[in-house]
Structures are given as structure tokens and as C-alpha cells.
């Protein structure tokens, strides 16, 4: 248990008749970027808030770095940095003032807090904006400042709730790059529903739905364990009716069409390999290629949620 960054045992949270978390069990090792995946309303933010000490579970227990999380005991929050989904700041402050203020809250002396603020402004590329009021910041700048404020106390665990969901592609690239760099010094626990982000930065993944853990493992292990074999079929022009024909085959699972590209998840890989050429033969010259590809995390995610 001492080796774990985060541990949840039977974590349950009820809001009246709504069961947001239903006995969630989770183990997050230290020094990894951990993707906490789930559809909207799965309980990701509720888990984050419990871990940040903002709400109390109805039942169960959460521990961070071996210490129980409690809303009323601020001590454990020394080990935690938290970025909510929509970070909000005092608009009248400058980012440097805000980071110095946070520094004082996490127990740094005045000079230490100022030094740390400058370091972090450099890290999140906000040095140029250090003396501007936060009120005028863009969404991306706020997100980067949000990450900086979470890092002020050099936390053992960094909780990032949907850190890139509302960012444009450039902002997303910056934030993900930053998260990758952070993994060298801290455990990053990142909730998201953007699978491409998880593919890019996370080493371990947990998938939850309806407040329950569906699976937890390394990315590769998840793919091997849960994803069905996937075949990609590309045609020169759109092939009308092909998707429907494939769906009708007894060994075929989910079929997704995006323009001239079809992705087929096979329930029975060997039958698919045997019979698919015959089906595709009818396309004649319209067929550009077909191949068995590595399943993506999205395939795993969809499969687990469909079960």
C-alpha cells in the first residue's frame, strides 16, 4: 500500500437518488501518467473531488501516498496538486501574484514562493504574461496557469480533471507536452474522455462507467486483453451497402464507416481472415486495401462500454 500513489477502496458517492460512484476500487502506482477514462457522467469528476478533499464519500476510503483523504484534515492535501475541469482564478491578480499566494498556502516562505512562482511561469510558458491580470487570459493560458498552481507545492500526486478538453489543438499540444514532462517528478492522475490524449501521454489506464471500474491496466495490456481484432478496409469510392453487409456477417462486430474507410471489429479473427477476402472480392477495382490493424484504445473503450 505504501508504494501506491492513489488507492480507492469501495469508494461510493450518492447524491440523493443518484449513485455517482458505486464501490470504486482503484490502485495507481507512483510516477506514472495515469489515464482515468470514462464517458460523461461516469463519476470521474466526483472521484477527483473526493481525492482533492472537496467532497466526502458516502462510503469507502481513498488514500493518497498512503494517507487517508479527509475533507476536514488539510494535511494530506500537501501531497496533492489539483486542477479542476474549469480552473477559476482571481481575475484581479497577476499570475505571479496568484502563484506566490498559492505558495504561501502550501507553506512556502515568501522568497521561496516567489522563486517557485518564477520557475513555474517559465515551465508553463507564461513568463511574458507574468504581470498581466489573469482576468484577460485565454482559456489555454488559464489551463497552463492551472497546472502551474497545482505544482507549486511539488506534490506527490497531481490530479488533473479533463486538462485538455476545452482547448484548441495548439493549447492541447502544449498541455499534453507539459504533462509528459511532469511524469518525471510526480504521479499524474488525469481524467479525460479524449482517447487520443490517453494514447499519447498515459502509461496506465482505468476505465469507469456508472461509477464502477470496468478495467485497469497498462495501455498495451488493455488492448491485448479487451480489444477485438480490427480490420480496416479502404475503398477508392464510397461502397454503398458494404457496411450493412459486413454487419450482417455472424463473426462481425461493430462496423464504423468514415467516408471511404471502414473499421470492422471481428468477434472471430480466424473466420474474419478466412471469409473477408471473399466478401471484399465483390468490390472489384474499388478496393484500395484491407488489413488487420492494431486495436486502438477507442476500440477497447467502446468494447468495454458495450458489454
Amino acid at each position: 500500500m505504501a508504494g501506491l500513489a492513489i488507492e480507492c477502496r469501495g469508494l461510493t458517492k450518492r447524491y440523493g437518488a443518484v449513485l455517482a460512484l458505486d464501490g470504486l476500487n482503484l490502485e495507481v502506482p507512483r510516477r506514472v501518467v495515469f489515464g482515468f477514462l470514462g464517458p460523461n457522467g461516469a463519476g470521474k469528476t466526483t472521484t477527483m473531488k473526493i481525492l482533492a478533499g472537496l467532497i466526502a464519500p458516502t462510503a469507502g476510503e481513498a488514500r493518497i501516498a498512503g494517507r487517508p483523504v479527509s475533507r476536514e484534515d488539510p494535511a494530506v492535501r500537501r501531497s496533492v496538486g489539483y486542477l479542476p475541469e474549469e480552473p477559476a482564478f482571481y481575475g484581479w491578480m497577476t499570475p505571479r501574484e496568484y502563484l506566490v499566494f498559492v505558495g504561501a498556502l502550501v507553506g512556502l516562505s515568501g522568497p521561496e514562493a516567489r522563486r517557485r512562482a518564477d520557475e513555474l511561469l517559465e515551465l508553463v510558458n507564461l513568463r511574458e504574461a507574468a504581470r498581466r491580470r489573469i482576468g484577460g487570459f485565454s482559456r489555454g493560458m488559464r489551463q497552463r496557469l492551472g497546472i502551474a498552481q497545482a505544482l507549486v507545492g511539488r506534490p506527490e500526486v497531481l490530479l488533473l480533471d479533463e486538462p485538455s478538453s476545452a482547448l484548441d489543438p495548439l493549447g492541447r499540444r502544449d498541455v499534453l507536452g507539459l504533462i509528459e514532462r511532469l511524469a518525471e517528478e510526480t504521479t499524474v492522475f488525469m481524467s479525460t474522455h479524449i482517447l487520443a490524449d490517453v494514447e499519447r501521454v498515459c502509461q496506465q489506464v482505468a476505465i469507469i462507467a456508472q461509477g464502477r471500474l470496468l478495467a485497469q491496466a497498462g495501455k498495451e495490456e488493455l488492448r491485448q486483453r479487451y480489444a477485438a481484432p480490427v480490420f480496416e478496409i479502404e475503398t477508392a469510392a464510397e461502397a454503398p451497402g458494404l457496411a450493412e453487409r459486413l454487419r450482417g456477417l455472424p463473426w462481425a462486430g461493430r462496423v464504423v464507416q468514415e467516408g471511404n474507410l471502414l473499421r470492422l471489429m471481428a468477434r472471430d479473427a480466424s473466420r474474419a481472415r478466412e471469409e473477408l477476402p471473399t466478401v471484399l472480392g465483390t468490390l472489384g477495382g474499388n478496393l484500395v486495401r484491407y488489413e488487420q490493424v492494431l486495436p486502438t484504445l477507442e476500440d477497447v473503450f467502446v468494447r468495454l462500454l458495450e458489454v
Binding site: 492535501r77 489539483y82 479542476p84 480552473p87 477559476a88 482564478f89 498556502l105 507545492g153
Partner: peptide, 10 residues
């Protein structure tokens, strides 16, 4: 939304 940002600190 500024309150959770402060109360998530020690």
C-alpha cells in the same frame, strides 16, 4: 469557482 482552487490546498 475560485473556492475549490483554494480549498484543495492544505
Amino acid at each position: 469557482g475560485t473556492l475549490p482552487m483554494v480549498l484543495a490546498k492544505p
